[in-house]
């Protein structure tokens, strides 16, 4: 039980990395929204823009990447499944 299959190890690794990105975007960037508002982006103050649109697009990016990468992993290790 203790030996971890390579598929699961890679999955865990990928999940952890994407989660870290998610946490940084969600909690660290939002904390500094006030300071980010000093910059302007497409006419929006950047802090506001990021919370209203930017972060949503990043979220989409994260799960699109995850879905792609997992499909590759599935194909790579499909033979290992019982």
């Amino acid at each position: 039980m203790n030996q971890v299959s390579p598929y699961w190890r890679k999955t865990r690794h990928l999940t952890a990395w994407l989660l870290v990105i998610w946490v940084v975007l969600t909690f660290c960037v939002s904390w500094f929204a006030r300071e980010l508002n000093a910059y302007s982006f497409f006419g929006f103050p950047f802090g506001f823009y990021f919370a209203a649109q930017g972060i949503l697009l990043c979220y989409l990016g994260i799960i699109v990447y995850y879905s792609r990468r997992m499909r590759q992993l599935d194909a790579e290790y499909a033979g290992d499944a019982e």
Binding site: T15, L18, L19, W22, T26, S30, A33, G47, F48, A51, A52, I55, L56, Y59, I62, I63, Y66, S67
Partner: peptide, 20 residues
Amino acid sequence: FQGLAYVIGWTGGFVLVALL
């Protein structure tokens, strides 16, 4: 701006759904 917590929260949750 404070209301954007709902926008972020209600979409960010789907990242957790997808990954976890």
